[in-house]
Each structure stands twice: as C-alpha cells, then as structure tokens.
Write a protein that binds this DNA or RNA. Structure first.
Lengths: 199, 199
DNA sequence: CTCCAATGTTTACAGTGGTTATTTAGTGAA
DNA sequence: TTCACTAAATAACCACTGTAAACATTGGAG
C-alpha cells in the first residue's frame, strides 16, 4: 500500500515544516501564550511526542516559528520600495498585523527564550535589519539624510516603526485605532523623524 | 501565644498586596511566562488556594501586577520634568528597565489577557497617557510644537519612546546596547522628532 | 459576648500539558 | 535479506490550574 496514495504515511516526510505551519495557526487561534505543543501536534495529525524528533522542546518550536517569520519579514521589506523609509514602515506594520501571532514570538523574548540561553533569534533578525540599513545608507548618499552612523539612524527609525506597530497591536491605551489611521500616523511620524534627522 | 509577637498570624492582613509583590519578584526571577500561581503563593508563605480569595485566577493576578505598575509608571512620569518630552522619555525607559517583568505584563496582552475579555488594563493605562498628553499640550501652547490634535502627536511621540524601550528590552537585533547609549539615542530621536513636528 | 462573614489551611481530584523512557514501524544501504 | 538508523507511537511521570469540601482563626457587627 505504499503507492502514490500516501494516506498518512508512517513517515510524514516534512513534519518539521508541518509543525511550524500548525504552530502558527494554533498561535493565531488561541494566542501565543496558550499555545501547547500537544495541540500543535494534534493539529498536524501526529502524536505529541513526534514533535520531539524535530524540536528540542516547546520553546524550540516557538523559536522555529519566529525564525521562519523573520525570513518572511525580510521578504516583505525587500518587496516594498527600497528608496523610502515610509514604504518600509508601512510594509513592517502590515506584516505585523497580518502575522500578529508570529510577530509576538519574534519580538517578545519571554515567550520563547528561557533565561541565559544562546539566542538564535539574534542571527535571524539580522537580514531584516540589513534591508532597513541599506535603505538608510542610500538615503544618506542621496542627501536626504545627513551623514552619520547609519546604525544610530537605524535604531531611531526602527524605534518609531516598531513602537507604533506594537502599540497598535498590544497597547491598552490606544484601543480604537483603525488600520487606516495607524498607517497615516506612521507615515506622518516617519516624515517628521526624517525631517528632524535631515538637519 | 497570641501576644504581640505575631509570628505569621493566621490572617495575613494584606495578602493581596503581598501576592502582587511576590508575583513581581517571581516574574523577575523566572520570567513573566514561567510564573506560576503556586510559586507566587509559596513565595508569599501561603497556601496556593489562599490566592483565590483575592484573585479570580492566575491571569487576574497578572493583571493586578500590571495595573499597579501603571500607577508606578504614572508617578515616575510625573516626577520627571513636565516641560520636556525628553525627560519623560528617559523616565519611561528607566522605569521599563528597572521593572522589566512588570513592563511586559503591562504591554504584552497575550501574557495576561485571554481573548475577548473586557480589558481592565485599558483604564489603568489612561493616567500615564494623560501625563504625556499634558506635556504635549503645554509644549504646543509654548510654541515648541505646532498646533494640532495632541492625541496624534502623543501617539507618534509614544511610539518613539515605547519603540526604543521595547527594542532595548526585547529585540534580538540590537543586543549589545548599553543603558548609556540607549538614553543617548532616545534623546536624539526625541529631539529629531520634535524638530520635525515643529514645522 | 455571640455569632457571622471573611480569610486561610489541608486535602483531594479532574484535566491539561511538558518531558522522558521504551517500544514499534518504516527506510535504506550493505 | 539483514541490519542499523530514523521517525513515530505508547505509556508513564510530574507540575500546574482550577475547583471543591471540611476545618481553623480572626475581627467585627449586632
């Protein structure tokens, strides 16, 4: 019966990725906090211990989801216009709202990083950082930003983008912001910041 | 033996606050994610069922910690100079780094807010918001910020402050930022933003 | 002073979840 | 075919949440 039919073969073939997919779905449904490894395995149609063949423990699975999502964020930023921080900012915000569960794993250490462990997310976060940095360098060369350490500009710009994004996603003080208003204010904030940084 | 000695009296007297204290300490030690109600009770020297006399469940305890911390943040912001967003920003950052566990409960919904529950943190977040808003209105009246909806300015400014703060606390892409550098860049960011918003 | 309500303790239980140890089922190479 | 290896399943252990029942202590209202 090992024809091409492949009714739930004993060996899944790509269980690792299937678990990452299921995990992202579960996180989206029940919230990142409430995600259980057993539920993820159920969703993937597999015994819960099978997951331990591919991930060291629950946190390792969560980190896997986050790392994969960093790649998707990088792609989203690269697709956006590369000559404008405003466009990058909007892409960032849209990625976060459309992948809110993964976004939390990416940027909330406590969800998947026990104390004192080597942080594999650090490496995963470098590509999106590099995309933003390249845009900043390009703007400096074009004279739209004054010269200076691009890493400093990067941190300040990222703060603005990431701050508004997390506030929209999480912060209780600003509940009723529409996606439209958020994008509008993010653009305004980026423009103001750029103007202030142009000297 | 009921003299004034009072060796762990049967009635604690202020168990609710003692549990909030213990909870903050436990969260600081083991991380907000790993906090268990039973460990908090142990730390407070009390049976775990006693906690249910003061909190509906684990999440209710966590929300209690967050709500109290919002009050402390308000006090910290009020203590800072009230005529400068830079000073407020620094106070915000310092509060977050010195109360990192509570800060996470305050601003990471998923840690203590199950889906679809009325959000008591929304009310608790209004006072610190009001402090920042008052500073902005004062700056507008002084002509240091151009007129306009103070709530819009508030959101943009808070984004900058909150963004850099959360990045310093959590984000893997910027690991090695010293407290000194963080404060320096936060001030620079706020100055740039203010300059851009001054028209 | 008496009684009551609130607060805490102990014990126990069902349900869920993380993790490990052990066993079984396929896979692929010699 | 055989044999080692990988991947998966089963069973078991322990911790934690939430709830309940039965009991102890206390303070305060009347």
């Amino acid at each position: 019966m090992s024809t091409s039919e492949a009714r739930t073969p004993y060996h899944h073939g790509d269980l690792r990725n299937a678990l990452l997919d299921a995990g992202a779905r579960v996180a989206h449904d029940v919230g990142p906090e409430a995600l259980s490894l057993r539920e993820v395995a159920r969703r993937a149609g597999v015994s819960h211990t099978a997951a331990y063949n591919h991930f060291a423990d629950r946190n390792d699975l969560l980190r896997g989801i986050a790392i994969r999502a960093f790649g998707e964020l990088t792609a989203a930023l690269e697709t956006a216009e590369t000559d404008s921080l405003e466009a990058s900012a909007i892409a960032y915000l849209q990625f976060a709202t459309s992948h809110s569960a993964e976004f939390r794993f990416m940027f909330q250490k406590s969800l998947c990083m026990p104390e004192g462990v080597f942080d594999p997310l650090e490496a995963a976060a470098q590509p999106p950082r590099a995309v933003l940095r390249k845009t900043i360098v390009r703007l400096q060369e074009a004279g739209e930003l004054k010269p200076g350490d691009p890493d400093d500009v990067l941190l300040v710009a990222w703060s603005q983008i990431h701050g508004l994004t997390t506030i929209v996603l999480e912060t209780p003080a600003f509940k009723g912001i529409s996606e439209e208003d958020a994008e509008h204010l993010l653009k305004a904030g980026m423009r103001a910041l750029m103007a202030g940084l142009a000297d």
